[in-house]
Design a protein around this nucleic acid. Structure first.
Length: 366
DNA sequence: TCTGGGGTCCTTCCGCCA
DNA sequence: TCTGTGGCGGAAGGACCC
């Protein structure tokens, strides 16, 4: 989906169309209805506190702000941008709707989060048909039909990449964003994929990207030209081989239509850093609430966890985790809180904390 | 004024056991 | 009995993704 959260917000605030808008921050900053019928929106420049941008409209991106950027930093770059709070309930609702719209036409769907999916079109009627001289004519029409259906169901645009595998489709879906459709075959890889920076490959993040740069490798083409053995020597057997395959557009992962959750967690960053001793009562309250939320999520979805863990982030942003595997899986708040409390005792709590989290892993179905 | 929240997967290390 | 080897579960951290 294109700029998903922002696009959902624009549906209810159409007067913001074309303006720089960012989504993020806490519950504050709800738009205010005014006596004359117009709405008053918060300005990014007036924001004070912690938080990051979750989504920015394309107009806002022109100011150099985007996902993951701290709100205070973004406020300097685009003070007049409109700031809207996140409304996950609403995004989840639109997420369900767009996935249902796709499923009406192509049921083999792999969930990749709230705004992204892989679709296996191989067995959908018409997908293998040529149209005139266009061997991909059938699948192109099918993709267009899916995008139309999403648009009808949600009022939102999406971008699609249609290719022989997930790796290439992910890259291709970005080529004509927003509201784009890119159809690629293996033969298109040298011309369309190789000129792109290595970071466009799903799985090459900040660390690997930076290391590749020190090796003089900037583009996917340069990565493809690099000897497999050199990559293995630099990145290890597994990742080195994967890098080499990925650069050549090779990927044989199937579209996974069924998936069981591995863990469920809740975490929160405090408005101000808290100290284990001085802010003991407040920390304890937050800790208990997180355990209750994890318990609630587990029970609602019908799971119990045998491994209970905590996550702490200190004021210097260093993060530690501790976990504890129990005899029996648990799903009630008291048991989770108790196990999490045992984990907490194993951490040195001299420095102040900025984040606390509780996690349940090794899930079993109830 | 830095840097959210929810995840997955991989690597490494360690103890235990065959 | 000593030593090596290898599998496995658990724990911790880190990279990456949406």
């Amino acid at each position: 989906m294109d700029a998903f959260f922002a696009s959902v917000e624009l549906l209810r605030y159409p007067e913001l169309a074309g303006l720089p808008v960012v989504i993020g921050g806490g519950r504050r900053h709800q738009p205010l209805a005014q006596p004359d019928g117009t709405r008053r929106f918060a300005r990014l420049g007036d924001y004070v506190g912690r938080g990051v941008i979750t989504t920015a409209t394309y107009a806002a991106r022109d100011y150099g702000v985007g996902s993951g950027m701290g709100l205070m930093k973004a406020a300097k770059r685009a003070p007049d941008a409109v700031l809207l709070p996140t409304d996950f309930e609403r995004y989840r609702d639109y997420s369900r709707r767009f996935k249902a719209a796709v499923a009406e036409i192509a049921p083999a769907i792999e969930d990749r989060g709230i705004d992204e999916i892989y679709i296996d079109l191989s067995d959908v009627p018409g997908a293998q048909d040529s149209v005139g001289f266009d061997a991909a004519g059938g699948v192109r029409a099918l993709a267009q039909e899916i995008r139309n259906n999403v648009r009808r169901a949600t009022g939102l645009t999406c971008s699609m990449g249609v290719t022989p595998n997930k790796l290439l489709s992910k890259i291709a879906s970005d080529l004509d964003k927003p509201d784009g459709l890119a159809v690629l075959t293996e033969a298109d890889v040298p011309l369309r994929i190789w000129p792109l920076p290595v970071r466009r490959i799903n799985g090459i993040g900040p660390k690997a990207g930076a290391k590749l740069l020190t090796l003089g490798i900037r583009t996917i083409g340069e990565l493809a030209a690099c000897e497999r053995e050199r990559l293995v020597a630099q990145f290890g057997r597994s990742y080195g081989r994967w890098l080499h395959d990925a650069a050549h557009g090779r990927d044989d992962r199937p579209v996974e239509t069924h998936g069981e959750p591995v863990s469920m967690s809740r975490e929160t960053t405090f408005e101000r850093d808290l100290h284990a001793v001085r802010d003991r009562a407040e920390l304890s309250r937050i800790f208990t609430r997180l355990a209750e939320q994890v318990a609630f999520d587990l029970q609602r979805k019908g799971y119990a966890g045998r491994t209970i863990g905590i996550k702490l982030r200190f004021e210097d942003f260093k993060t530690v985790t501790r976990d504890l595997t129990l005899e029996q899986p648990v799903s009630d708040a008291r048991a989770i809180r108790r196990a999490a409390g045992l984990c907490l005792k194993r951490v040195d709590l001299q420095r102040r904390l900025r984040l606390l989290g509780v996690r349940a892993g090794s899930l079993v179905r109830l």
